[in-house]
Design a protein around this nucleic acid. Structure first.
Length: 550
RNA sequence: GCGCCCGUAGCUCAAUCGGAUAGAGCAACGGCCUUCUAAGCCGUAGGUUGCAGGUUCGAUUCCUGCCGGGCGCACCA
């Protein structure tokens, strides 16, 4: 297109100098070609000529230039619609079989080194639903970004120090005493879930009554560390069973141990981004878009949580990452501006930190909201959900919506979900393909050999509109992966897979793959194995299995 | 009060950088299994894209105001 525009200008047909961006899109409706461009519309203003006139000038250059082009039409106000030959589409099947699991991924080895931090729930209890959404999102994003050539590490930030930790230790300690018949009252803000009793019980089994004597203070640290260790193990196990193993578990305690918080404050001071007021130390975040400057050291000498957060982000950058992605729940969105401002104050480009906000999950049971509170212990855990619903369905469910819309997760619905859960629709499409392949094999077809001997000629029997529709959708896959990765929106992939599955089911219904006609059967086997590859590739990115039978 | 996110079919959601006639699933209604898996397919119905302006060839998309919902606004962690 760009060449055509250039030629028009050098031949004096068009006279403008500005060059609009040339984009190709896939039209929504039949009869509008395989690809279309709005270039003539965009040029109309620059050239001061009617768009249709510009379009016909462009077409005169474009015609007969490319053997894939069947015909070109001008439509509506000045769209240029391209109709491509069937060979063009068939040829994408060859490239799918050539690239296999690499189809849709870029061949460029490493573009950027990215650290994606997600879940990072406080280790004061088992993971619950909202963390599951973050987990599914972060994990799918990781593979999406890897598919387009980035190197991605996954990190979990552990808030393993501070007041919450003390409270956790205290809660376990009191439950422990309770197990020996003592009457206790849990203070305001304690963790009251049954899992605390579970931890205390395990300790009683292991060590008996040895912590009954002595003061609470003398045992508190032990109880804190013991509870913490137990809970971290739970969290790791739950995530592992959900299909996620983080590259690093970053401890806030280590951050303090290594003196990084005071260091970052010194660093900010050296950049004149730190000042003292009212006995406290403040970071200048306002010049970078924050509403107000923020306190990092309180007048009582205590460093705020925000101070550790700044130090943590500096630590990430210093480890050599080009880009950081944080995934936070909507309940933390108020912190986006300040942490972005703080990283800018340290001198890091704002574009290098992306904070992705996901809206909260409304857990429903029979359509009624389940009130959840970690402290009161009334929450549904991620484990409970994956045990009841299954990993595949849970992940798919979490990834079906754009991250910035609230997600209703009805447990009863998800549990009985056979009809209503779309993951089955996609997985069934895959299983169906496998089933055809099994039958083909039993009838003596060697699909692998057929694929090896495929070329444009052997694909000629593929002529039906249903077949072209599927192939067109397959060819769209690499571009879809790129745009989903750029936008950090894995949900686009779930929609794509549902759509592709729909095309397959429709094709299955209207055409038989295995027929008397051997050449046709060959071509169709090549087609369905290509569909299978794309379904597998897509499901792999989402972290969902592709079953061969259902 | 201020800030961020969302308002699209009865419900849950899409809509490729501002593009053509706004699409799926579920629910409803009517059809399709002597055939490679009916966890499937086909058809019908369903809309003033919250409201009102603005920007332009063109707006679900961008801007302003309003209405409604969610979340957040500490020298807390």
């Amino acid at each position: 297109m760009e060449d055509a525009l250039q030629q028009c200008r050098s031949q004096g047909i068009l006279t403008g100098s500005k060059k609009p961006k040339v984009t190709l899109e896939i039209p929504k409706h039949d009869g509008q070609g395989d690809f279309a461009t709005t270039l003539a519309l965009a040029l109309a203003k620059i050239e001061k000529k009617p768009p249709r006139e510009i379009a016909s000038a462009l077409i005169s250059i474009l015609e007969n230039q490319n053997s894939w082009i069947e015909k070109i039409e001008i439509a509506g106000p000045g769209y240029i619609n391209f109709f491509l030959t069937q060979d063009f589409w068939r040829q994408t099947l060859l490239s799918i079989h050539e690239q296999k699991s690499g189809f849709g991924k870029t061949s460029v080895p490493t573009k950027e080194k990215i650290l994606i931090e997600f879940v990072s729930a406080n280790p004061t209890g088992p993971l619950h639903v909202a963390s599951g959404r973050a987990a599914a999102l972060g994990d799918a994003l990781t593979r999406l970004l890897e598919a387009v050539g980035h190197q991605v590490d996954q990190e979990y930030y552990l808030n393993d120090i501070g007041a919450q930790m003390k409270l956790l230790g205290r809660s376990t300690y009191l439950r422990y005493r309770e197990l020996f018949g003592e009457k206790i009252t849990l203070p305001e803000g304690s963790y009251q879930g049954d899992y605390i009793i579970e931890i205390a019980e395990a300790l009683k089994q292991k060590d008996g009554d040895r912590y009954l004597s002595g003061t609470e203070t003398s045992h508190l640290d032990f109880f804190t560390q013991y509870s913490l260790k137990t809970i971290i193990t739970w969290i790791k196990t739950d995530l592992h069973d959900f299909g996620i193993d983080f590259n690093t578990w970053f401890s806030e305690k280590d951050l303090h141990k290594n003196n990084e918080v005071p260091e970052v404050l010194e660093f900010l001071k050296s950049k004149t981004m730190l000042y003292e007021k009212d006995g406290a130390q403040w970071v200048s975040t306002t010049p970078f878009g924050d509403d107000k400057d923020r306190v990092v050291v309180r007048s009582n000498g205590h460093k705020t949580y925000f101070a550790s957060d700044i130090a943590y982000h500096r630590n990430k950058f210093k480890r050599g990452y080009d880009r950081l992605i944080d995934i936070w729940g909507a309940d933390h969105h108020g912190y986006v501006n300040r942490i972005k401002a703080a990283t800018e104050a340290m001198g890091y480009e704002s574009g290098r930190l992306t904070i992705l906000i996901h809206q909260l999950v409304n857990l429903l049971r029979d359509g009624k909201p389940v009130k959840m509170s970690k402290r009161a212990g009334t929450f549904v855990t991620l484990r409970e959900i994956i045990e009841e619903v299954g990993v595949d369905a849970t992940r798919f469910f979490f990834l079906m919506r754009r991250s910035d819309t609230a997600l209703d997760f009805d447990l009863e619905l998800a549990k009985k979900a056979t009809n209503e859960n779309p993951v089955f629709y996609v997985q069934y499409a895959h299983a169906r393909l496998c089933s055809i392949l099994r039958v083909a094999k039993s009838q003596g077809f060697d699909t692998a050999a057929l694929i090896k001997n495929t070329d444009l000629n052997t694909l000629k029997p593929l002529t039906l509109p249903e077949e072209m529709a599927v192939i067109r959708e397959l060819s769209r896959y690499p571009e879809l992966i790129h745009s989903a990765a750029d936008a950090l929106e894995p949900h686009r992939l779930t929609f794509y897979l549902q759509n592709l599955s729909g095309l397959l089911h429709r094709y299955y219904f209207s055409c038989r793959v295995i027929t008397e006609d051997e050449l046709l059967t060959h071509a169709r086997l090549v087609l369905i194995t290509a569909i299978r590859i794309v379904l597998q590739n897509g499901l792999q990115i989402l972290g969902i299995s592709a079953p061969e039978e259902m």
